[in-house]
Design a protein around this nucleic acid. Sequence first.
DNA 1: ATGCCGAAGTTACTTCGA
Length: 258
Amino acid sequence: MRVATWNINSINARLDRLLAWLEAARPDVVCLQELKCATADVPADALAAAGYQIAAHGEGRWNGVAVLSRIGLADVTRGLEGQPAFGETVEARAIGARCGPVRVWSVYVPNGRDVADAHYPYKLAFLASLKATAAAEAAGGPFAVLGDFNICPTDDDLWDAEAWSGTTHVTGAERAALADVESVGLADVFPRALKHAWPFTFWDYRNLDFPKNRGMRIDLALANPALTGAVADAYVDREARKGKGASDHAPLVLDLDL
DNA sequence: ATGCCGAAGTTACTTCGA
């Protein structure tokens, strides 16, 4: 089976792209982030016509996560156990579901903005609640947390570590929080790059970053042994980042012997 | 060629992203 994660950067603005990619790649399960619409506004009918059920947790202008499946969709959970609020709002950043033999969470970890900004400790608190949720589910059958973590696990995971030193996405505290999530028994499934030396998953729209391969590997699949043991292939589909109307993220795809 | 940012809410400009 094929499981993917993709920060779609608006599911409605990107609907034609998404449908074309589903048709071409035929994933069984897709974790989506940055829907940028309310739950009621997801294009469920168009996805159903393409053979996919959707469980969405939307919010409006920002955030929003979903799980698409063509192999069944059950036990949907919206939000993490103990997920912190920002201000008054518990944002739409996590949704869990069971799809056939796998249990997945689709997560959109807060950006953090700046280490001096209130969004930075919020990001770390979100990761702590993610650890608690993952700990409760990691034992047993195939399980993974997939999504946009907004963290480069190592300095190799961004195009210019020196230029980004001291900024969010690369701090020791963020990397330690990510390692803490993994400590419950999850491993970072490292994908193949289809071109260039490293499998970046995000390239900013600005400054020709994609053509110049100024990217970051921030979209991750953290999987338990029952899932990592079934990985036949993993890659970043950078073809989906090309051309007019692309998301600024590319899908991370896992092929599993399940 | 991969090509100089884009989405959404609101209505010409603002906020956000990494």
